[in-house]
Simulated scan of single mutants.
Amino acid sequence: MSVLIAIPARYASTRYPGKPLVALTGATGEAKSLIQRSWEAACQVKGVERVVVATDDDRICTASEEFGAEVVMTSETCQNGTERCAEALENLGGGYEIVVNLQGDAPLTPHWFVEDLVNGLKNDAAAQVATPVLRCDGRALNGFLEDRANGRVGGTTAVFGHDRHALYFSKEVVPYTGHKYADEDETPVFHHVGVYAYRPAALRDYRGWRPGPIETLEGLEQLRFLENGQSVLCVEVEARGRQFWELNNPEDVPRIQAMMKEMGMP
């Protein structure tokens, strides 16, 4: 199956304006923008025909082309990354059987997360949308709880049924555990990794649906699928010793840089 990775990136982020162009310094001391590091992560994924940055901003376009990325310009009316991926696919003329949305704020995404995600969608003929979930260890869960206690959104959690289809996604920490975990403990909480794989029909349907009340309250684009009766397959991925965090707030920059240095990422 032909696979396209689209990296949606917008400048006017509510929580962190200009986020895609924020510089991140790795283990070698080299500073690269968030969008470049996300593009480099996408280029490591095996079995992908094409990687593009999808944006509506000339500054992001220029920066992306300078480090060698292909850019697809999309409209300012896109409300989220899924809508931007749908428009990017249309602007490219279609022709891909799976479209991966690797959001531009997840530079620590290992290539096998995306490879496992694509394979999960390929192996479930009934699934139209899939997304990865990562079981939290105590360190990650305690980080989520600390962020929420301080009024920050540290990440999204997912709950799903026996069939691995999502029941809910939330910026709150769900399910409630009421338990204190040591850093190395396994927990029952799953971190939703901000990557999606869609079949083209799912993207077409998505653009025709209005945002629902739950999507609007949570600010989570994937809830539009659930609110319209479309199931979302949750594919469990393994960290393999890698740390994972998304850049949602300015406070996340030193956290991610520390993780990069600890893992020896350049």
Results as ranks from 00 to 15, higher is better:
137 D>V: 03
119 N>H: 15
183 D>N: 14
151 G>Q: 10
233 L>V: 04
10 R>V: 09
170 S>R: 03
15 R>H: 01
182 A>I: 07
95 G>C: 09
18 G>S: 06
167 L>T: 11
127 A>M: 11
202 A>V: 08
248 N>Y: 07
238 E>I: 05
32 K>S: 12
184 E>R: 06
68 G>Q: 04
18 G>F: 01
208 G>E: 14
47 G>E: 01
45 V>G: 02
94 G>I: 09
124 D>A: 08
2 S>H: 05
243 Q>N: 12
181 Y>E: 07
156 T>A: 08
170 S>T: 08
193 V>H: 05
250 P>M: 01
191 H>R: 13
13 S>W: 03
85 C>W: 01
15 R>S: 02
65 E>S: 07
147 D>Q: 09
186 E>Y: 03
256 I>L: 14
71 V>K: 13
219 G>L: 00
20 P>I: 02
41 A>F: 01
156 T>R: 08
258 A>T: 09
227 E>W: 10
235 V>D: 02
180 K>W: 15
96 Y>P: 04
146 E>Y: 14
83 E>C: 03
169 F>K: 05
154 G>V: 03
85 C>T: 01
35 I>D: 01
169 F>A: 06
113 F>L: 00
207 R>L: 14
181 Y>D: 07
87 E>Y: 05
257 Q>Y: 09
157 T>L: 00
109 T>H: 02
92 L>A: 02
212 G>W: 13
140 A>E: 08
56 D>E: 12
51 V>K: 09
17 P>E: 05
178 G>K: 10
102 L>V: 07
215 E>A: 11
171 K>M: 02
49 E>Q: 15
195 V>E: 00
40 E>L: 15
225 F>H: 05
156 T>N: 08
164 R>D: 14
47 G>K: 14
76 E>F: 10
259 M>V: 09
42 A>W: 04
130 A>V: 02
76 E>D: 11
203 L>I: 00
188 P>F: 14
35 I>G: 00
157 T>C: 11
220 L>V: 03
99 V>N: 00
49 E>S: 15
73 M>P: 02
152 R>F: 12
131 T>V: 04
53 V>G: 02
139 R>G: 12
232 V>A: 01
65 E>D: 07
178 G>A: 09
